[in-house]
């Protein structure tokens, strides 16, 4: 088995075991209702994590996504509730704003040679600050379009419901996986994460790819912001604080190497589901503090980082011996 597949398989196995254990304790967790809610409740995190997967594979990081979600939610809510725009127009504008925001960060990362950590940290403060300047309060959205979307549901046998936003996330994952693994742009992203010097000598358009990666991440974060607004029917400037860290965790748990060059979009999906499982388990248990989620995520992250180290160190040894 290729060494880059091993973390993915490990994640899948851990998810299967964890889910089986949870079902043994709470048999009702094995139902279409729980699974449907898995998708709906984690939709915005999943969409964000797809963008984050691209950034991390390219060897970068994007700390601004949580703030972009918050900003988009506020922008959409204000445009609809105060300016009277149609939601679709508001969505289009906020996606365009986010895309240019991401392009700006990509430009800074590439041309100013500033570490992505710093650039996107600045982006995070900008977006979060911008959202708070527009409004300090939660802006509720009441629009028939929102009601119409939340009624778009596929009912599953057993009482489960597949919501529009849950299916949207699945669609984003599928498109993301195709782009990452089956297009030239995808191969350039991996090339950049593998070795930027080699990549440019091999003719990879480094500037275009870097800018593209951050545009993808910000645009998907804005899409997640739209999903979050549909999910909560409101825009709040302090929404989704810390989601960037959850997204990074999901990506790493999903087997993507934090230093870039290796990873799978599908792995990120399992990573998001694993985080959702932990949360659902704690809700089912009822007696545990929700902060246990963070402890479990911390432990999982640590486990996976150690696991990746071991796998890559072991295969490096094997190469020398052969």
């Amino acid at each position: 088995m290729s060494r880059s597949l091993r973390p993915l398989v490990a994640t899948a196995v851990i998810f299967a075991i964890a889910y089986a254990l949870a079902v043994m304790q709470f048999p009702s967790m094995f139902s279409t209702r729980v699974l449907g809610n898995f998708l709906t409740d984690n939709a915005f995190l999943g969409i964000t994590a797809v963008g984050m997967t691209f950034v991390i594979i390219s060897g970068g990081i994007d700390l601004s996504v949580g703030a972009v979600i918050g900003f988009t939610g506020v922008l959409v809510a204000v445009l609809i509730a105060w300016a009277g725009w149609h939601p679709l127009a508001a969505f289009a504008l906020s996606l365009a704003v986010a895309a240019s925001f991401g392009a700006g960060m990509g430009l800074a990362v590439h041309y100013l040679q500033v570490p992505a950590f710093i650039v996107t940290l600045a982006g995070m403060f900008l977006a979060r600050g911008g959202a708070s300047v527009i409004t300090q309060d939660s802006v509720p959205v009441n629009h028939e379009f929102y009601d119409w979307i939340s009624d778009l549901i596929i009912r599953l046998p057993g009482g489960g419901r597949l919501s529009f936003i849950g299916l949207l996330m699945v669609a984003v994952f599928i498109v993301g996986a195709l782009v990452a693994h089956r297009t030239r742009f995808g191969s350039y992203v991996y090339a950049l994460g593998g070795n930027p010097v080699s990549a440019s000598l091999m003719g990879v358009p480094v500037a275009r790819t870097t800018i593209g990666v951050y545009m993808v991440s910000s645009t998907l974060a804005a899409l997640a912001g739209i999903v979050f607004s549909l999910y909560t029917s409101a825009g709040y400037p302090l929404a989704a604080v810390g989601v960037e860290l959850d997204a990074i965790s999901a990506v790493v748990i999903g087997g993507t190497l934090l230093t870039g060059g290796y990873g799978f979009v599908l792995g990120t999906f399992i990573g998001v589901m694993l985080l959702g499982l932990v949360q659902t388990y704690i809700i089912f248990d009822g007696s545990l503090s929700s902060w246990w989620t963070k402890i479990v995520i911390g432990a999982l992250l640590f486990l996976f980082i150690v696991l990746q180290r071991l796998i890559f160190a072991a295969s490096a040894q094997g190469e020398k011996a052969s």
Binding site: S4, L178, R182, T183, R184, G186, S187, Y188, Y190, A191, G193, G194, N195, S198, A199, M202, G203, V204, G261, Y262
Partner: peptide, 22 residues
Amino acid sequence: LPNRSVAENLFLGHQPTRFGLV
């Protein structure tokens, strides 16, 4: 690029495509 397949190293930037996909 040691992290990519041999084939991709040979063809990077010139991959044959079908319907826009490699």
